[in-house]
Design a protein around this nucleic acid. Structure first.
Lengths: 343, 343
DNA sequence: ATATTTTACGCAATCGATTGTAATTTTAAA
DNA sequence: TTTAAAATTACAATCGATTGCGTAAAATAT
């Protein structure tokens, strides 16, 4: 790779016998420069294949036009969709994204955040890892005067901008659907309760029981069953109970629901007639299992759009007195074969 | 968001009554600065919550420590895995990733590339969009002295670093497997032939026919069938032929294979006994369809690792005479239920 | 034709970190 | 004790773009 000296505004200025400041103004379409020279400058810039050095520009302007995103894993449908949604909006505004993966590890998450602070990003967008136990690093972001937007998995106690799903409502609807479908003993596979999203999903589950006057059976609630393997394990336990459930709400993810389905198939238990299954997140595969899995769509791409728009809205707004906004997106229950007991 | 004046090396220097240059050297662990003052500086920097301004640093050093990635879509398993793989490596080296999506659109791809050149990224990693017809924009990258690495979908005529799969070999193995499994009339769903990967996959298909002395039947080759919908459409055509195929190699993707499976199911054609199906890319869902789909794993995360390592290898290497490297990764045939005719 | 307002451009400082060179201090050698 | 060598630290330029301020030139008004 040969070193190429890239053209700067000084090169353009010299060639035209003018000052760099005029060149800069012209390229920023300032009204302070004559239309004719402006044209000439732009033409010359083009000829010399000039590209503005964003580093210098941003250094001078004290911004980076960059947004940092910290997520557990990029290669997970939900997250890559959110990122796609963020990118859609930021790209048009000339902002860049820096993506970091925390790998569900609290320490790596701290590292990621620090890296981004180092980068002087204008905003950090984060969905905290399941492993997170304190939020000093997020407070640190705020202390550096960097905008912080949390989405989906949020630290509730921190007053920041948030874009979330209405998990309570979604769970409530899912469980109601099961109850109305004739399922009597509905189990819950729950996720780490330090994450508010999982707490809320449990809350929705309980709320539905209350609404329909169905008693909650503690032994049907399985903790920490949020991967395919853990979901399968939990299911084996549940199905070997003296009084096994006739439906399982895998509130953590479709992966977990898939684990349930696998176990049911392996044990020769018919879905949905003997066991109803409901997942969460509308992963692409949930549609193509047999039977297909009832799940909850979180509008992930839209969520990403919302996050980005929220940021641009905020930077246009200097009013520091406004309360941090929380935007809640209503998920949608997608009813599929795995919960249609009587059809 | 209140404006916070961030501490600079000058603040630290002033507080300690020394020069910024010493501070800079200390923080870069230069041997030119006394151990004691170095410690003191580091301690003070920490106290003042100092974070180096990467913009200034990189501007001065004439680099950006940033790698730009252009892919068709981030929310596609293969690509998000490659990115995850790239990130794994670059993160540790203190490099950042900027992700752009071309959306399979040639013009947006050009825009993305220009944005990245603007950003003065140190390297651009790209998998070209299906829609690409010329590569002037990529030549432009090279003209700017920016390292260019192509992966998977590459423009062969451009002499750049490349990380590819051995598509010919993989296809050859897949089709051989079908032939050996007793399938007689094997159809091919092929992708846009302007992309070399699809040409190569076709080549592998033909190669297998030759190797086993099986005549190629032109009407069993369906062009441009590279989405689920197009795959389904192609399948309907194939299955309504007077002499329909008894196996379909969806060389474009598992999505296409899924389309095949759907149509077969809808028409009551039994897979794998009446119709064998082989996909490509080992998407996560291919394992959970019924029957599960035989496919080809591309080691996508490893591919990402390889891309990143290649970059770091190259920047350590000033020898401009070396030929551009091409690294070929051997994909693996994953045999599953959809092609086990006689089991 | 002169005074006044606009317009257009130049000058120079600035953003924050890095680095070659010069100056100073410390250490070691004579 | 003097001197040479080595180790520290200071000074100042630099990376490239931006921008407040000042001034010359052009346009308008008197």
């Amino acid at each position: 790779m040969k070193k190429v000296k890239r053209t700067t505004i000084y090169d353009i200025a010299e060639k035209l016998g003018i000052t760099a400041s005029s060149v800069s103004r012209a390229l920023n379409n300032s009204s302070q420069v004559n239309e004719k020279t402006k044209e000439l400058i732009i033409k010359t810039a083009d000829e010399l294949n000039y590209k503005r050095n964003i580093l210098a520009s941003n250094l001078r302007k004290g911004q980076s036009k960059t947004i940092g995103v910290v997520i557990p894993r990029i290669n997970q449908n939900f997250f890559s969709n959110v990122i796609a949604g963020i990118e859609e909006v930021t790209y048009q505004k000339g902002y860049n994204l820096i993506i970091c993966q925390s790998g569900e590890d609290h320490n790596k998450e701290i590292q990621c955040v620090n890296t981004l602070i180092n980068q002087h990003v204008d905003c950090i967008v984060i969905s905290v890892s399941a492993d997170s136990y304190d939020y000093q690093h997020l407070q640190n972001v705020l202390d550096h005067g960097i905008q912080l937007i949390q989405f989906d998995r949020v630290a509730e106690e921190l007053e920041t901008l948030k874009v979330i799903n209405d998990n309570v409502q979604a769970s409530y609807e899912a469980v109601s659907h099961l109850i109305e479908g004739g399922y009597k003993r509905i189990a819950l596979l729950e996720g780490p309760q330090n994450l508010s999203i999982f707490k809320q999903r449990k809350e929705g589950y309980l709320k539905a029981f209350k609404a329909y006057n169905v008693p909650v059976i503690d032994e049907l609630i399985v903790e920490n069953a949020w991967t395919k393997e853990l979901g399968a394990e939990g299911t084996r336990k549940l199905l070997s109970l003296p009084q096994p459930p006739d439906a399982i709400f895998a509130s953590t993810s479709d992966f977990s629901a898939l684990g349930v389905l696998d176990v049911a198939n392996a044990m020769g238990i018919k879905v949905p007639s003997e066991l109803g299954i409901c997942g969460y997140a509308n992963e692409s595969f949930s549609e193509i299992t047999s039977p297909s899995i009832t799940t909850i769509d979180q509008f992930s791409v839209y969520m990403g759009n919302t996050v980005a728009n929220l940021f641009f809205q905020e930077i246009g707004n200097n009013d520091t007195t406004t309360k941090p906004k929380i935007i809640s997106i209503k998920p949608e229950l997608i009813i599929r074969g795995s919960t249609l007991k009587n059809k």
